[in-house]
Design a protein around this nucleic acid. Sequence first.
DNA 1: ATCCTGAATGAAACCGATTACATCGTGCTT
DNA 2: AAGCACGATGTAATCGGTTTCATTCAGGAT
Lengths: 335, 335
Amino acid sequence: MKNDRPRISDVARLAGVSTATVSRALSNPALVSLETRAAVQDAISATGYRLNQAARNLRHRRTGGIVALVPNLANPFFAQILSGIASVLGPAGYNLLVADTRAEGAGRLLDYAEPSRADGLIVLDGALPAAALTGRIPLVLACEWVPGLAALRVKIDNRAAVALVVDHLADLGHRRIGHVAGPPGNVLSIARLGGFRDRLAARGLILAPDALYPGDFSLESGRAAAECWLAQPVSSRPTAIFLASDAMACGFMGEVRRHGLSVPGDVSVVGFDDIELTGHVDPPLTTIRQPRLAIGRIAAEQLLRRIEGGPDHSGDVILPVELVIRASTAPPMPR
Amino acid sequence: MKNDRPRISDVARLAGVSTATVSRALSNPALVSLETRAAVQDAISATGYRLNQAARNLRHRRTGGIVALVPNLANPFFAQILSGIASVLGPAGYNLLVADTRAEGAGRLLDYAEPSRADGLIVLDGALPAAALTGRIPLVLACEWVPGLAALRVKIDNRAAVALVVDHLADLGHRRIGHVAGPPGNVLSIARLGGFRDRLAARGLILAPDALYPGDFSLESGRAAAECWLAQPVSSRPTAIFLASDAMACGFMGEVRRHGLSVPGDVSVVGFDDIELTGHVDPPLTTIRQPRLAIGRIAAEQLLRRIEGGPDHSGDVILPVELVIRASTAPPMPR
DNA sequence: ATCCTGAATGAAACCGATTACATCGTGCTT
DNA sequence: AAGCACGATGTAATCGGTTTCATTCAGGAT
């Protein structure tokens, strides 16, 4: 009653064959005669046999698992990328292990980049130490990337995306355009801020120091940025704000509107990501659409290719973005 | 160069002891003398040895993995529960496998409820077949539950939560209160709708057929419900709407406001879940706060207790909810 | 001095599959 | 008729740890 899980040898005995034959019938049926195969099948259903994965993994020197390292599981942005990853991994016979890099003892994370635990790694957090990830198991980087870590990157062209934003706002006639950045040090924050500055310059504009607000991608930090903006004198306030994430943009808009001002009447707002929500808030948000599902899917596909013996080509896959123009942007109010 | 992963025997040889001793030094140091332990440690760092999990799992007849079955990975509500789960599992030496029950071939899901793949299961989807989950591996149900499946449930008291909502709206003076339900057949939809009806009745109110709108928890379905509501003559429109999820409530409010109406001026809105966003939209949403992190954490703790030999007590853990009153509800406009 | 106890350790079985290699018939070639 | 190739199957080694059981040795009890 306790140890009642049938083993392969139980099946073999019942079918009157050896364990080798059962194993072959399961993993390479072509090697087994039709009648034997049938007998094995019968024995399997009679015993209710189920393969022991740990044993197979041990023998195959693989685990069947892929680990995704995400900076924050609770963030819907990553959730949808995971969804894309899972949609590829499942059918391919791998399972997805998820670890939150910010959640617990950082030391344990190294355990994941370990061949006996996972066959591959998808890193969504650019703040991990490159050294810890180097030369362990096949990995790809998605969205964020770790500076100095040679691995395939699946990402968007952040600078080009930001250029679309600047052009849109500048074309509308905005001259004083502000920015709420992502967390300091984050590769995306840096790329977006840098691209923003450069494109402003290309359009003959500059980013005034008091038009650059700190942020960390969170709703709350967007709200806080709005407070700063509201505190500025109307005459020197940016007439348009580009925020490095949709979450911040929502927080920003909410706070501005709660103070009785209007978007885009008093300020135009542009976000980044195009999370589902942004089309449903009031006003619907102008933003950059990132193909999240595709990012996840492609990252997973590339990783599997690598695992299955592909070359460790460490280039980049750049996915296209799109500026989605909705109602949160308009020409600046004449003053 | 190819098969260079040191095994335990390599460590043993270098340390001048047997593999048994190395194993003990690792998993039960108390059994090994201080000097031997030190020698083993030296040999381990000299060789760069890393334990092979598959081998240990095979011997221990366990996998070290816990599977969470979620209906929709892309939904932030579940993401935060997962976050809570992960925060318990990691430190306990388990890793979290995530599977999206709606994503791929349903047959494969059974593979997860299988002892050689995972040591336990956390089910977040009430729509799975009870038969497939019965008597396989330790499991707990969180949030949603599978009717007829005897297992511990970690959940909130949906009926009591809804009663809070009804009382709040009735106390404000609303008499015509509408409801946007969750997906048909979903246990939460049913519990919330049922509780809603009952509490209305207790307050001497009824749910008019044209005040019940279909939904599926998604933003878009909330928006669609708003369309229905807007299409109704003002005189017979509900003056307050309770929506079974915050996502729907956001979709609803966005659409209503885009039509130039005001919340709560023209209609009071109450959501359910208290996802982070709801405090930041305009107006901030009155809603029921579910302790998502705690749900995840407790579900994981209970599961581990069960796995580590606890009794298969299949009762319920009911977590407290709270009505968070914000600015989306107000007395009805005098007509 | 002898026996007993317990700490420290090693030898070998074991977890449950996979697979290299050996074996045994058949049927075909020459 | 001898030789050979090939299909089907069995034997046993193997993956890399863990753990039972046996052994050794030091110190304390008698």
